[in-house]
């Protein structure tokens, strides 16, 4: 689990995740990228703020909960903070399991929880100026789906 201002290479993270473990049968990855548009405006830059200390704790708790539900082999979460440009990877969630089913479920669970629980905030620079990105109702819905299953 890492929170960093430096760019990262998702492929290298996956290579590290699978290194030297022949018990892994499946890896599922989610890579969130900076999109160059949002709600009808062109987005030139993104600034990501976070709450140092709580962010790491929250990510740890989310991954621990995924591990409790699906007994993962390995898991890697990397999240950028600071200044980002279009196409930059923002977040990587990579989950390794024995079989695909639990890896798919755990990966989706982790990104759904990260989006509504981990203290990160996006401020975008658009053609109309700067603005803080608002939370999405669809992200809250995704969480309720997991809560009704637990």
């Amino acid at each position: 689990m890492r929170v960093q201002s430096e760019p990262f290479d998702p492929n290298r993270e996956v290579d590290l995740l699978r290194a030297d473990d022949p018990s892994i049968g499946a890896i599922v990855t989610f890579i969130g990228l900076m999109r160059d548009s949002n709600e009808g405006a062109r987005v030139d830059r993104l600034f990501l703020e976070h709450y140092p200390g709580m962010t790491e704790k929250a990510l740890r708790q989310i991954v621990d909960e995924a591990d409790r539900r699906w007994e993962l082999q390995h898991c890697r979460v990397v999240h950028r903070v600071g200044e980002l440009l279009p196409s930059d990877p923002i977040v990587l969630v990579a989950v390794a399991g024995r079989h695909r089913k639990e890896a798919f479920m755990a990966c989706e669970f982790i990104i759904d929880y990260l989006k509504t629980k981990a203290p990160f905030w996006k401020r975008e620079t658009t053609s109309d100026g700067e603005r803080w990105v608002g939370a999405r109702e669809s992200d809250d819905k995704a969480i309720r789906h997991w809560q009704s299953e637990s």
Partner: peptide
């Protein structure tokens, strides 16, 4: 994560913020 019922104690670190938008 806390809510309106969470008790407060001397020395606590309390944070207030808008809904999160990471990922």
């Amino acid at each position: 994560v806390a809510d309106r019922q969470t008790p407060l104690h001397e020395g606590d670190e309390v944070a207030l913020f808008p809904p999160v938008t990471g990922g």
